[in-house]
Simulated scan of single mutants.
Amino acid sequence: MDLMEFWFRSRSVIDDLVEKFLRESRDWEVMEMSKYIMRDGKRFRGTLMFLFNGALGGEEKEAYPGALATEILHSASLALDDIVDYDEIRRGMKAAWAVYTNRKVIFVSNYLIPTALNVISVYGDKALRISVDLWKDTAVGALKDMYGKDEDYIRTVELKTASLFKLPAMLSSFSSGQSQYLDTLMEAGKDLGVIYQVIDDYVDCVTQEKEKLVGSAKQLYNLTSGKYESFVRLKYSEYKTHYEGLLNSLPLKEEYRDQLIALPDFLAFGLMGEAGIKNKIF
């Protein structure tokens, strides 16, 4: 099974997990808003949970709670980001706040976040503590995204985006019973998260007028004085090389190795292809 097939299959499984989670909600209004917030996600982060868990010899069902919790947290973070950024469109439809109002979405997000952390608690206290710390990192990253200095661009990206890539990689160490590789897996997740956000910001720089750039994309543009291509190429190469080195230090099952190696290119080319821009940097 190649990476594309694995992703399609994982996305289907995660969608089923999300649907089951929503059906079990006891409050109809909360369920409806939660369903809207969690609709139509790419499920990249949940897929990472399945990939690393399987590569380390874990049973797929043991990764279900981590994949679900990761997607809940990611969806809640996007819903809150849209409020802060006044973004009215998310995944081709009105953002949740534009449908349900700011207050309701904030309240529902405040319901989803501890619910996800409660799901994570099945992996034990250490996994839960780390997850809380990673969620706090995303909050700090969101502040840096709005108010941070241009020269802190990479740190902003590590916090605001890579934290939620580190999460499923970290949880896979517990789901697979390979917690001795926790630190290595978190580093691998960080590398993938930085790659994802740097390419996402590159796409924004290419497709938007500089006056309309916000957050980390604006920081990238300002940091490089508009000459972002060479910077993005360099950082992509650096993080991809480091990521591959980490993979070589892990006892991966061979049937997963090629899929994991392909992840940086998969994420990068997927983002550029979705935006309809030609590859200018690789």
Score class of each variant (00 low, 15 high):
Met4Phe: 10
Phe6Met: 11
Trp7Arg: 11
Arg9Cys: 06
Ser10Trp: 13
Ser12Phe: 07
Lys20Val: 10
Lys20Thr: 09
Glu24Phe: 01
Ser25Arg: 14
Val30Thr: 13
Val30Asn: 08
Met31Tyr: 05
Lys35Leu: 02
Gly41Asn: 11
Lys42Met: 10
Arg45Gln: 06
Thr47Cys: 13
Gly57Val: 05
Glu60Met: 01
Gly66Ile: 02
Ala67Thr: 04
Ala69Asn: 05
Thr70Gln: 07
His74Ile: 15
Ser75Gly: 14
Ala76Trp: 03
Asp87Gly: 10
Glu88Leu: 12
Arg90Lys: 12
Arg90Met: 10
Arg90Asp: 01
Arg91Ile: 12
Arg91Gln: 07
Ala95Trp: 04
Ala96Glu: 14
Thr101Met: 12
Ile106Glu: 02
Tyr111Val: 10
Ile113Arg: 03
Pro114Met: 14
Pro114Cys: 13
Thr115Tyr: 14
Ser121Ala: 12
Tyr123Phe: 13
Asp125Pro: 15
Ala127Thr: 03
Asp133Glu: 14
Leu134Met: 02
Lys136Trp: 02
Asp137Val: 02
Thr138Asn: 01
Thr138Gly: 00
Lys144Ser: 12
Met146Val: 15
Tyr147Cys: 11
Gly148Arg: 05
Glu158Pro: 11
Leu159Ser: 00
Ser163Cys: 15
Leu164Gln: 08
Lys166Arg: 10
Pro168Phe: 07
Ala169Arg: 02
Met170Gly: 06
Met170Asn: 11
Met170Ser: 11
Leu171Asn: 11
Ser172Glu: 08
Phe174Val: 04
Phe174His: 09
Ser175Pro: 00
Leu182Val: 04
Thr184Cys: 03
Ala188Gly: 07
Leu192Gln: 13
Leu192Arg: 11
Gln197Gly: 02
Ile199Asn: 10
Tyr202Trp: 10
Asp204Gly: 04
Val206Tyr: 01
Lys212Val: 09
Gly215Glu: 08
Ser216Trp: 08
Ala217Asn: 04
Glu229Arg: 08
Ser230His: 02
Ser237Val: 08
Ser237Leu: 10
Glu238Cys: 05
Thr241Arg: 14
Glu244Asp: 06
Gly245Ser: 00
Gly245Pro: 09
Leu246Met: 03
Asn248Ser: 14
Ser249Leu: 14
Leu250Met: 12
Pro251Arg: 15
Leu252Asn: 06
Lys253Met: 04
Lys253Phe: 04
Glu254Thr: 07
Glu255Phe: 03
Gln259Arg: 10
Gln259Ser: 04
Leu260Asn: 13
Phe266Tyr: 13
Leu267Asp: 02
Gly273Met: 00
Ala275Met: 05
Lys278Glu: 15
